[in-house]
């Protein structure tokens, strides 16, 4: 099973961050619509099952 940890859109939360938890990361995805580009950041865990946006790191 592929997990978030292996995804290029997964960014581990630094240890000095206030919301740090072991295995926690930010899933950052680029989106674009008629009004332009934007980026979304959603908390995730490195062992979460990958989603359809998965891209191998």
């Amino acid at each position: 099973m592929t997990t978030c940890k292996n995804c290029s859109f997964y960014f581990a939360v630094p240890e000095d961050a206030g919301d740090f938890e072991a295995g926690k990361g930010d899933c950052v995805l680029e989106r674009e619509d008629a009004k332009g580009k934007y980026w979304l950041s959603k908390p995730t865990k490195n062992d979460s099952a990958s989603c359809k946006a998965f891209k191998k790191a």
Partner: peptide, 13 residues
Amino acid sequence: NWARRHARLAKIV
């Protein structure tokens, strides 16, 4: 923490 999540997002982008 929420504001600093924004900081991380800007840096990651």
